[in-house]
Write a protein that binds this DNA or RNA. Structure first.
Lengths: 217, 217
DNA sequence: AGTGTTTCATAGTGAACGATATGAAACCTA
DNA sequence: TAGGTTTCATATCGTTCACTATGAAACACT
C-alpha cells in the first residue's frame, strides 16, 4: 500500500545483511544520539554495513531516520486498539504513560524517547525530519482524543471534559519524562510522574468518589 | 562575585562590541537551534562578531553556550524568591508553569525552552554541556521541592505530599510544553496544559478533601 | 611622534560531515 | 561456461565543522 517492498529484483548478488535487522540497529543509534548528531559513520558502525550499502538500501540519512522512527513508534492501529481495550480513557492514558516510563528506562535501550531526542533542534535542513516526528506525536495525541471522546459519549466523562487539553498534557508529560530519563531519573521516578499526571482527571470524571477504580494490573 | 569580570586590561584597542549584547544574541541562536546544530558560523552571523573575537571573548563554543544558558535561566535566587512570594506552593508552581507557557510562545523569542532543545542528544563531546543543562533543571527542581516542603511545614499541604514526585511532574510538564511549542502549539494550548498540570494537587491539599487513595502503586 | 598592548579582519588549519564513483565479486539464467 | 545483474569494499568527492595563525589597525601612555 505504501510502497513496493520488493524493488525490481532481477537475480543479482544477494544482500549480505538482513534489512530489518540493520534498520533496528539504526533505530537504536538514532534513539541514543538523535538525528543530527548521529553521523553516517556512527550508523555504519552500529549497523555493520558500509556507507554505499546503506544508501542503496535506505536512500539517504533522512529516509533512514524516518523508517527507523516508524519502527520505533510501531503500529498506530495497535496502539489505538490497546487504548480502547482499557476500561476507561483515564486508565488507558495511565497505561500509556506507565508504558512510556518503562520504555524510557529500559536496560537494553537508550534512555528517553526517540521522538523527543531526535529532532528537538531547529536546523533548517532537518525540517522534514522534525515534521515527521511532530506528525508521529500528533497521531498519538489524536488517538488519546478519540479515546476521551469515546468516554464522553459513553457518559464516563463529563461532556465538558477538555479532551484536547488532557491529550496535550499526556503528550507533554510523556516527552517531559523523556527529559527526566535522559537526566538520569530511574524507572520509579518516571512511574511516579506517570501516576501523578492523571491525578487531575478526577475533576472531570464520573469515577471520582463513585468507586469505579477498577485496576486489573 | 563569581569571577573577575575585568581581566588584566592594559590599555589596548577597545572592544568594538558590547559583550552582554552579543551574548544575548548568542543565547537566542542557541535557543533557536540547540547547541550542536548551531555552528560557529551561525553564531558569528547572529552576534555580528568574527570568529577570533568570539573565541577571545568567550573561550570556545561550550563555554559560550554555558554563559548563554546562565543568561537564559536567569538568577536562581530571584526565581526562588518569587516562588516563595506566592501564597501556596501549588500557586507558585502554577505561576511557574504559566510563565513557561508564555515564555515558550513569545513572539520575539524562539519557541520552546532553551534547556529542552539545547542538548537533548547524546553526542559524547557535548557531555559537559548536557551535564550543565541537567544541573540547571535540577536547580529548578530543588527550588520547587523547597517550596513544597515549606507548605508541608506550614500545614498547608499534607505531610504525605510527595514533594519529589510533584517537582518531577512540574519539570516534566515544563519540558513537555517546550516540545508542544516547537510542534506549533500556541500560547492558549500551553496555558491549558499548565493549568491541567496542577489539577491533581488537590489530593494533597488542605483546601480539598484529604485521603483519596489511589489504586496504582 | 613613538612605543606597548589589545582587538581587528583575512585567510586558512586538519578533521569530520553526508554522499558517491569505481571496479571487483557474487549470484541467477542459459 | 558466458552474459546479465546486483551488491560488495575501497577510496574518495566537495563542503562544513570548530578553531587559529598572522599581521594590520586602534587605542593609552610617554
Amino acid at each position: 500500500m505504501k510502497h513496493d517492498q520488493t524493488p525490481p529484483r532481477k537475480t543479482g548478488r544477494p544482500l549480505s545483511f538482513d534489512r530489518d535487522d540493520v534498520l533496528e540497529k539504526a533505530m537504536l543509534a538514532f534513539w541514543k544520539s538523535g538525528y543530527e548528531t548521529t553521523s553516517i559513520a556512527d550508523l555504519t558502525a552500529a549497523m555493520g554495513v558500509t556507507a554505499p550499502s546503506l544508501y542503496a538500501a535506505f536512500g539517504n540519512k533522512q529516509q533512514l531516520f524516518v523508517e527507523a522512527m516508524r519502527r520505533y513508534a510501531g503500529d498506530q492501529a495497535a496502539l489505538e486498539a490497546s487504548m480502547f481495550q482499557a476500561p476507561t480513557a483515564r486508565e488507558a492514558v495511565g497505561d500509556m504513560l506507565r508504558g512510556a516510563a518503562v520504555l524510557f528506562t529500559g536496560e537494553t535501550t537508550p534512555p528517553g524517547c526517540l521522538l523527543a531526542s531526535a529532532a528537538a533542534t531547529g536546523s533548517p535542513d532537518a525540517a522534514e525530519v522534525r515534521a515527521a516526528v511532530a506528525g508521529e506525536r500528533r497521531a498519538v495525541r489524536d488517538i488519546i482524543m478519540r479515546r476521551i471522546a469515546a468516554d464522553i459519549a459513553a457518559a464516563r466523562l463529563s461532556p465538558e471534559t477538555p479532551a484536547d487539553m488532557l491529550a496535550d498534557l499526556a503528550i507533554a508529560v510523556t516527552q517531559g519524562m523523556s527529559v527526566l530519563a535522559r537526566d538520569g531519573a530511574d524507572r520509579g521516578r518516571l512511574l511516579a510522574v506517570a501516576a501523578a499526571a492523571t491525578a487531575g482527571w478526577g475533576v472531570y470524571g464520573a469515577d471520582v468518589g463513585v468507586g469505579l477504580s477498577r485496576s486489573s494490573a
